[in-house]
Design a protein around this nucleic acid. Structure first.
Length: 178
DNA sequence: TAAGTGCGTCGTT
DNA sequence: AACGACGCACTTA
């Protein structure tokens, strides 16, 4: 607290991690001074983890967080979120950010193949790299990497529990081939 | 049909 | 230089 420069005090918000209880478990959202920068799936750890109290957070983050909570719950119930909080995707490389932005355009119910995403960002041969970028997605669910299937409507992979991909797609009434 | 192999390709580490 | 949340062609059963 003492060593911070004036610029940091004025422009930088303390990174925050806020929990989000849902019927599917406790998610954890991370915020930078630019917006939502991470979303963790529920894990055994999250259940017992000390959750930073939302009341102690800056009001801006509280506002962002309420938007996150609402959007998350909407997607979890198979709906398209109306509003997203500001997203901070700056942790990604240029390529990854292109992919993530492309994913944001996929509305609920719809899906794209890894190949189609590659085409969408004007890099049609980078199919496999798109998969890598999906795996590096810091904000799953809200950046809907689960809506990317392999060719011919096959499921494809998922870094965290593949059951999440199946669950989310099922709730969005998306079908795939086994 | 289903399952397995090999290879091209590209971004990341 | 090695590794993937891929895609495609091509074998086998």
């Amino acid at each position: 607290m003492r060593g911070r420069g004036i610029l940091q005090i004025m422009s930088q918000t303390k990174p925050a991690a806020l929990s989000i209880p849902t019927p599917d478990g406790v998610f954890v959202a991370h915020y930078s001074d630019k917006g939502l920068c991470g979303l963790e799936f529920p894990s055994g750890k999250n259940k017992t983890e000390i959750q930073s109290d939302a009341d102690a957070s800056p009001r801006q983050i509280q506002l962002w967080h309420s938007a996150t909570v609402k959007a998350l719950k909407q997607v979890l119930s198979g709906k398209t979120p109306e509003k997203l909080p500001p997203l901070d995707l700056s942790s990604g490389t240029n390529f990854q950010q292109q992919v993530w932005r492309a994913l944001l355009k996929i509305s609920s119910v719809k899906t794209l193949s890894y190949g189609q995403v590659a085409e969408a960002i004007g890099n049609p041969k980078a199919v496999r790299a798109v998969g890598g970028a999906c795996g590096a997605n810091p904000i799953p669910i809200l950046v809907p990497c689960h809506r990317v299937l392999a060719a011919h409507q096959r499921l494809g992979g998922f870094s965290s529990d593949p059951n999440w991909k199946r669950t989310l797609l099922t709730r969005e009434r998306v079908q795939w081939n086994s």
